[in-house]
Structure formats: structure tokens, C-alpha cells
Nucleic acid binder design. Sequence first.
DNA 1: ACTCCGCTTGACCAGGTGGTCAAGTACGAT
DNA 2: ATCGTACTTGACCACCTGGTCAAGCGGAGT
Lengths: 203, 203
Amino acid sequence: MAKQLTPRGEQRRNELLAFATKRFAANGYHPTSVAELVDGLGVGKGVFYWYFDSKEELFVEILREAERALRRAQWEAMDDDPDPIRRLETGIRASMHWWNEHRDLYRLIEFARTEASFASGVRKGEKVALDDTRKLVQAAMDAGQIPDGNAVVTAQAILGVSSVLARTQLLGRKRPPDEVADEVIDFCRYGLNGTRPEARRSA
Amino acid sequence: MAKQLTPRGEQRRNELLAFATKRFAANGYHPTSVAELVDGLGVGKGVFYWYFDSKEELFVEILREAERALRRAQWEAMDDDPDPIRRLETGIRASMHWWNEHRDLYRLIEFARTEASFASGVRKGEKVALDDTRKLVQAAMDAGQIPDGNAVVTAQAILGVSSVLARTQLLGRKRPPDEVADEVIDFCRYGLNGTRPEARRSA
DNA sequence: ACTCCGCTTGACCAGGTGGTCAAGTACGAT
DNA sequence: ATCGTACTTGACCACCTGGTCAAGCGGAGT
């Protein structure tokens, strides 16, 4: 697409993006028709196709923006901390807060992974996330903070724990993001055998 | 449904189940039409509606059978081992082998979770899996094998690591199930800080 | 006052969709 | 041989889908 938009146009486009996100998350991508979207906004169908080439493009756009926003949130939180383990923890915490405020997007990304037409895009985004994580794990290994091992697998495991606890504890039961982040960090650091020498748990 | 089926009927039904599983996993549930299924099998449309009330029922049936089969595989593997940690490990290993041989079903369950009409069914199945896991974690805590903690969250974390590494390592890169299971177990036991005193890694 | 163009309208389309059903076929039991 | 019923056929249906487009609107620039 990439069209020149006036401020008014920009706003319409965002309305469409936001409303579609809500409906897709609530009802699923396929069951939500373009008609439902424009009716819900009280506009004609042509509006939709003025801003997007297709329903599919709209969805891809939502995904792309979500990934960009999450990544930015993580990087802003990690800021310039030089300690890899602390960066990792901060990243996890930032992710939890972000998911907490963009619950709909979690489900959309999960769906996108299950359908061939979107899976490749999602995988690209996840590759970036994995690589960010992997680099931190590798740095921590190099610095001797944690024992050597397969950094890729370790990074995936960390993302897996984050993802599952985000889904179940944060989005499912509605626990506070910081609490869930603490649990993710705990499990990732110590695993089952973890001896936790001192009290932790942040505010 | 629940109809009296002759052996021939039973076979047809299984053909439909198997073919639909393959197509749903490859193309997605919604994009796969009933017409495509019956054409692929070279039968008339009435055949489909003889065995299933609707496309949706077919899908739910696939999910239900998948969950039952996986659970049975886990329990058969764990058999009568009294040690909870070892049971946990065996369960993880069995799951990896099962997913490895039923790759299509992984994606189907992931999709089912993203759509309101199927999500409740999936959650029920996952609740069972979580409870099985939680009981083992609790038993290990009670026996003093691992430190006390929130057994539910821990169980979820274990399932999360299993799930992610199954998806990425087992199904994505096509690593052997036993290797992936070892990595899951390693991470779950020791986390990042894990010191691994002796060489592990099974054959 | 007029023009221009970003934006909006909604009837319309071709092509599917899930689902039905009257009719027929195959086959085991008698 | 015939009968009953488990199964199969495929034309058919009402409805809905994503997408198009000629026509019109409205507000900023002149």
C-alpha cells in the first residue's frame, strides 16, 4: 500500500487497525468479515479498501506493528545496562508489561503461526526475538555468569517459559505483570532444583 | 453424533479423520472446505455428513482423540515408576516421541486455542495435562526432592519449555525426540544457573 | 466562488461456503 | 432370491465472502 495520508486519513486507518485487532482477537481472523469491520465502524466498505489492499494485508500490518512495538518496549527498558543477565530479566519484565497492555495481540500472533500464509512472517519476527535473547545468553556464558551450553536452545526455553506464563498467569488468571515476570525469572535461573537462598519477589 | 458403524463405516470415518487432520494442518481449518476433503478422498459430499454433523464437530473430534491418545502414551510410558521426578522426565520423553509422530496435531491444537469456538475444549484438555504435571511436581516437593514453591506455576513452566522446544527443535529443525527431551529436562532441572556435574545426553 | 483530491458511499459481482436430501447402491442376514 | 439398512451420490440451496467501482462529498488552497 503506502499511500500519502492526511491526518484525517491517518486517524481512520488507525481506527480500522484497532477495531480489527479487537474483532480478530475476539472472534478469529477468518470468522471476522470485512463487512463486520466496516459496519462496526459505521463506514462504507470502500473505506476499508482505500486504506488496505486486502483483509490479509491488514492483518499482516497488525502483526508487523505489534512486533515492532514489543521490541521497542524491550529495548527501551533494557536501555544501556551492560550486565547481560540483568538485561535478560529487564527484557522479560518489559515483555510482561507490554503483553499485559496488548492482550489481543498475543492471540493474534499465536493464530498467525498456525496458518501457512502468515507463519513465515511470524517466524521472521520470532527469529529476531530469539536472536536478541540468544546474544544475551551467549554474553552471559562468555562472561562466566552461567555455565556454557547451547545458547539457542536456552534462549528458546526462556522465551517458552515467558510465553506460557504470559498466557496462563498474566492473560488467563489476571496476575500482575511483575509477579509473573518474577516467576519466569526464577524458573529460568534455577529450574526445579533451584535453591533460592534469599527472599526475592519484587513489589 | 454417535452412530452405529459397521467395520466398513468405521474405516471410512477414520479415513475422513486422517485426511482432514492432514489438510487442516497444512492449510488451516477455515481455508479447508468440506468439498476439498471429500474430493480429496474421491467420495460424495453426503459421506461427510453421514459421519459428522458438521465440519466443526469433525474438528472437535480430532482434538479430543489427539488429547486422549497423547495422555495414554504418557501414562503407558510412566507405567508404575514411583519416583515423581523420574515420572516427570519419562512423561516429557514420551510426549516428545508422540509429537514427533503426530506433527500435524501440534498445529491443530495451537490453532484451536486461538478461536473462541474451540478454545474452551482445548483449555479443558490442557487443564488435565497441567493437573497431571502439577501432581508430580507437588509429590516431588513433598518428598523433598525439590524445594517448595508454587506447583501450578512450576508445572506450567515445564509444559511451556516442553511445548516450545517441541515446536522449534523437534518439529522445526528435525532433531531426534530423545535429544530434545534431554534438553527440556536439563533446563527444567537446573535453569540457566544449572551446573551439570556429569556428562548427560542419552543416545 | 471554485477547484481539486483525499476520502466515502453502497449497490454489485463472481465465486465459494457449509449443509440438505431424494435417490440409489452394496452387502450381510435370512 | 429378497429384504433391510448402512452407506453413497451429486445436484441443489440459501447465504455469505472478499473485493470492485462509478458516483458523490467536504474541506483546504487559491
